[in-house]
């Protein structure tokens, strides 16, 4: 009956979202008087899960599962859910887990609610609040099936430590040849950079920066803060920056702790995609720019004057607070 989470890892280490869904699942499990079981794939160091209230971990170690393969992974999650007689599967909103969630739901004949924010509003009937209309509204969804799957929106719950005693168990799923009809040929990671998906802070530049030659400002500021870099849509359409950096309603969603917008006007489509970020800072020459209506902190000023000075001050601050 316990709740099942899929605790994702990358390069043998848990992703932050794994701890976030663990924290969340533990809280839900307490209210349902049950426990949380985590499924891991090819990760040997699972001890950290005990910090977040996990009771049991099902460890899958399988050479066929070295590259992410949605169909095979979804099959593994289904088998784990069945073995544990799980009624609630909780996944994150990483690109991989979003990919998995719909397959897992169909496999388990489960109703799926994605983009969930906050704890269930009620457990009978099972109702959750989710983001909809690109962060412009919430939608309260009821799941009516016996088994339920939810995808927790990124950075919507946070990490809460809750020590537990972890039982480790090897789990050997039956893998079907049909699971492997998609083969990963190569993976290209943007090396040495924080990805928008994993970042706690994102520094984003718009057309106000005038041209790609000025992106040193954005990169330097991001470097001091350990942040990822992003941009508005026209900046990627103009080829100043790669598409992978385009954020907004039709680009990547951003749900970080801190989003810094430089030379971005704050068009409705841009804001829709970044509004789930907790704290927003805007730096713009135009005091009438719509971004000032949605930001928490604002500076009316020229990026070319403000940003270099901000970088220097942050360096000093970091040196002091290291």
């Amino acid at each position: 009956m316990s709740i099942l989470i899929y605790a994702e890892s990358a390069e043998g280490k848990f992703k932050k979202v794994a701890f976030e869904i663990a924290s969340y699942a533990k809280k839900v499990a307490d209210s349902l008087d049950t426990t949380v079981t985590a499924l891991t794939i090819n990760n040997d160091n699972v001890a950290d899960l005990a910090k977040y209230g996990i009771d049991k971990v099902l460890k899958v170690n399988n050479d066929k599962l070295v590259s992410f393969n949605a169909k095979a992974y979804a099959d593994v999650i289904k088998q784990a859910a069945q073995q544990e007689n799980t009624k609630l599967v909780i996944l994150s909103s990483s690109t991989d887990s979003i990919y998995l969630s719909s397959l897992v739901a169909v496999n388990l004949e489960a109703g799926l609610a994605s983009n969930v924010v906050g704890l269930p509003l009620s457990t009978t009937p099972f109702q959750v609040k989710r983001n909809a209309f690109s962060n412009k509204a919430f939608n309260i969804t009821e799941i009516n099936t016996d088994v339920k799957v939810i995808g927790l929106a990124k950075n919507s719950y946070g990490l809460f430590e809750n020590a537990s005693t972890l039982t480790e168990e090897a789990f050997n799923p039956n893998l079907d040849d049909n699971d492997f009809e998609i083969k990963v040929e190569s993976v290209e990671k943007t090396s040495g950079k924080v990805s928008i998906a994993d970042a706690d802070i994102v520094v984003s530049g718009g057309r106000g920066l005038k041209g790609p030659e000025n992106w040193g400002l954005i990169e330097d500021l991001a470097a001091v803060l350990g942040a990822a870099t992003a941009c508005s849509k026209p900046v990627s359409d103009l080829g100043w920056r790669p598409h992978g950096e385009h954020v907004g309603q039709t680009g990547k969603p951003v749900a970080t702790n801190l989003y810094i917008a430089i030379g971005i006007s704050g068009a409705i489509q841009h804001i829709a995609g970044i509004n789930a970020s907790k704290v927003k800072v805007v730096i713009n020459t135009d005091p009438e720019a719509p971004f000032f209506k949605v930001a928490d902190y604002g500076i009316v000023g020229d990026a070319f004057d403000v940003v270099p000075r901000l970088i220097e001050k942050l360096k000093a601050f970091k040196a002091q607070n290291a």
Binding site: S67, S94, K183, V184, E185, S186, E188, T190, S195, A197
Partner: peptide, 9 residues
Amino acid sequence: IDGGKETVS
């Protein structure tokens, strides 16, 4: 994918 891209067949 998060942080990059992958080629598949």
